[in-house]
Design a protein around this nucleic acid. Structure first.
Lengths: 216, 216
DNA sequence: AAATGCGATCTTGTATGCAAGATTATTGAC
DNA sequence: GTCAATAATCTTGCATACAAGATCGCATTT
């Protein structure tokens, strides 16, 4: 609570959305949220506007805010863009690698190896996140890093769903190893295409997942 | 004024920033803005938060909002990402082209030809914008289209600066022609690399421009 | 019985008020 | 004369109040 109430509320509501407590299509009543969090409507409105700007909620004038439902197709589009941005990050990382970035990537990769070996799906989920963040940072492009982190965050729930798929952990880790090798070898184009494929496949697998769920 | 005051204010302040009336680093005093536009502080605050989310202003708790000064290096980073996204849009356009998109691109390209031939820098500026928007739309990826449009908008002022450079109009138009040919031929990789180069070069030229201005 | 019009109620959008932190000016000491 | 500390002022952040549009329900009509 050391920060302003508005920012705190934004994170709080964002988490509630990402953890599916407020599912897609849910109405976000200002008064309801205000009483729930014990604040007035003003900071609630501010939080909602920020979530609107991020793309998590839709605000229609005089009609309130609702949680956006991206739908499988749009989620696939988001993975497509994510793949491209990660590919760029990987290529820049391969070109500009320094010792600090190299160590950070190595450490994150090691942690992934441990959790993947243990079959710890939740653990791998977090370590995987750190691994990708290390690559963003290694690109040495602050803007790209921010864009990647933001999109990564929005895709979080779907990636989580994704890792539950059988054998995905070891496949993902094997891909990581190849990516690390390419970056460390300074192979710009290889790093780009491997990362693009790594993320892109996630998107495709995701839509498979959704499709299989929908037909049931 | 049919819309809400908040949205109107957001556009108003955004324009003031993009047209350099509020230059980089300028303090955006809430009360000042409120009296200037004849409204209360509440909608001003909302507008500022939206601009903060877009990335145009920086809001530090209890210390007010200031117009962000990206600096040449960060602007170059933004062009770098823009190049990648446009490349993706171009490749998707080449793969998914339909008659409607084809006509839209052709029409926009024709308008560019006319204004470029007339040496009309301002006219070309708008037609060029429409041309790129036509390619975003042709990608048939709504998410990508939105991302491109948003970044394109943020880079607007710098691109404008850019077109003043000598011979840039005819060079740009020639590049457009090659891009259109690649997309219409369905050459996915060619469309991607041409667009990437087209935008990327803008970024490089921009930093040249800034560097030459800075040394004076 | 279904549909449409009217009114009550609820929700959002904007304004204003008040408290707390930040900035600035003034005063005092060295 | 300069630096530091304290007080006054200003600005932001949150809460509350009020107005206007949207939603929902009821009644009336066809």
């Amino acid at each position: 609570m050391s920060e302003s109430v508005g920012r705190w509320l934004r994170d709080e509501i964002e988490n509630a959305i990402l953890s599916n407590e407020f599912g897609p299509g849910a109405r976000l009543d200002e008064t309801m949220l205000a009483t729930r969090f014990g604040v007035s409507r003003t900071p609630v409105r501010e939080a909602l506007m920020q979530l609107n700007a991020i793309g998590l909620v839709d605000i229609r004038p005089r009609r309130g805010a609702v949680v956006i439902d991206p739908g499988p197709h749009r989620i696939y589009e988001m993975f497509e863009v994510m793949a491209e941005l990660e590919g760029l990050a990987g290529s820049l990382a391969a070109r500009r690698l320094n010792e600090e970035s190299r160590d950070a990537i190595t450490a994150a990769h090691k942690r992934c190896e441990i959790s993947a070996g243990a079959g710890d799906s939740d653990g791998y989920y977090y370590d995987n996140e750190a691994f990708h963040k290390a690559i963003y940072a290694a690109s040495r492009s602050e803007f790209l890093e921010e864009q990647c982190a933001q999109l990564h965050r929005r895709l979080r729930p779907y990636r989580r769903l994704q890792l539950r798929v059988r054998n995905r952990l070891s496949t993902s880790f094997a891909e990581h190893s190849a990516i690390v090798a390419a970056i460390f070898a300074g192979d710009v184009e290889q790093a780009r295409s491997l990362l693009r494929a790594h993320v892109g496949i996630q998107g495709e697998r995701f839509s498979d997942l959704v499709a299989s769920m929908a037909t049931r």
